[in-house]
Nucleic acid binder design. Structure first.
Lengths: 249, 249
DNA sequence: CGATTACTTGACACCGGTCAAAGCCGGTGG
DNA sequence: CCACCGGCTTTGACCGGTGTCAAGTAATCG
């Protein structure tokens, strides 16, 4: 059972044995569903690495919960760079989660000895930012069916990065209510849109398993552009950054 | 005529004479309305500081433009930290803009000599992130009138930081179409919601000037919580970061 | 002063929300 | 092994917020 962050970094930047040992930070603990991993508005000088399960960033707006992002294994709850962040969101476990706390100071210390790790963390942070931008664009400007399809594409791609999905299916332990709170829709409507996607045979879902007859078709329907996740070309980009960094010296 | 970034940093972190000279990076140029300051998808190793005018981050989705954020004087088009970013959005001038390009490498160089500047840039970056989160939450989970009201609160607060707004009014050079593309609404509906807010006497707008009879009432209506902009307490936070940084040594 | 761009208005359609009830499914305990 | 239970999913009827289309009015600029 490998650290999913290591898996992800290797997947994105090419296998790099040097990193394997660096990212074992210590003991992990479990968080049960519906419990907070990080409380809303808390002030922290650490981040938490999700090792297993699915969690979400959220904020309570009036009566209802707004989900602002999903976390899958290999993700950090908050950016690992600055000390003493006051978060303006909470992080809550959606399934049972395995979590490891990482001091930001410690992570910076490790990264300062390993420029590749430092670059990798930066890229992951930009990926996080890109996902947020994409949610904003989709949720504000797309009809419900495209929104939902796009979210499925994104989650599949991110899960695939840590070996939890392939091109044809993956396990998605979210309720329709979770999806609704993320997409800004009602639970009832999410249900109907799911049925609609099934009728079109764009997805086939049984229980928690989503299976995808034709990934290309799904991504086309959603208008999904995987490059924003730095999925392809990330290795090239890392190389270029190193080479230009050397040129400048 | 002062550099609005200096103004903003002083406003947020307290007057700090040491910064005054550091943030003059060189020549600026003008960009006319509707022209790109940075093209979508371009790869840059610099950022651009907006010195005057209003611009937006945007992305074209199908037929229509999605506005993903507004830029006011003192804002950067993209985060100033990493070299060689491939942007997944464009930046376009909404009014005539005065823009100054800043090499990321150079900015890092300057910041490395001035820990206060470095911290300030970090905080500004987190502020940017917080605004994005807030847009996502509002646009996905609020009815049109609250959304619009919230956006007006945010813009007023940000403009006030650089001396371009007070509690009772400010100049907002946006068309209703700009607002619509930002809020994910149709132009027609933005028009109607504006009328509605005027009927409630929550805002009074004449031409491009928005005047606010009672700021408290507007912010209450919008559910606006200014702390997410680091507006209050930012000075304290900066102090705390410095003192804890020293303690660790 | 004409021409273009922005704003305003009304009628109508539709997407998605709400409410309420009924199945389904997995777990728990007798 | 079955009965029960709570959470999740599915349905239907109805309503309201927003979008669309199209036309008309104001404002801005050369």
């Amino acid at each position: 059972m490998q650290n999913p962050l290591v898996l992800k970094i290797n997947q994105l930047f090419g296998s790099d044995a040097a990193l394997h040992g660096l990212l074992d930070f210590g003991p992990s603990h479990r968080v049960l569903p519906h419990l907070d991993i990080v409380g809303d508005g808390s002030e922290v000088s650490h981040t938490s690495l999700l090792l297993g399960g699915v969690a979400c960033r959220y904020r309570i707006m009036g009566e209802q919960r707004a989900i602002l992002g999903f976390l899958v294994p290999g993700d950090f709850t908050n950016p690992p760079f600055p000390d003493h962040q006051r978060l303006n969101f909470g992080v809550s476990a959606l399934t049972t989660c395995k979590v490891m706390n990482v001091s930001c100071a410690h992570l910076r210390e490790v990264a300062s000895h390993t420029p590749q790790l430092s670059t990798a963390l930066w890229t992951l942070n930009q990926m996080d930012h890109a996902i947020l931008l994409s949610w904003l664009a989709q949720n504000s400007h797309c009809p419900a069916d495209k929104r939902l399809a796009h979210l499925l594409c994104e989650l599949r791609a991110r899960l695939a990065l840590v070996g939890l999905a392939d091109d044809n299916s993956f396990l998605l332990p979210l309720t329709q209510e979770d999806l609704a709170d993320a997409l800004g829709l009602s639970t009832v409507h999410v249900n109907r849109v799911l049925q609609h996607l099934r009728e079109l045979d764009i997805i086939r879902s049984m229980g928690r398993t989503v299976s995808i007859p034709d990934l290309g078709q799904l991504e086309a329907f959603a208008g999904f552009n995987p490059t924003y996740l730095h999925l392809r070309g990330a290795v090239m980009r890392l190389d270029r950054m190193h080479s230009t960094a050397q040129m400048r010296k």
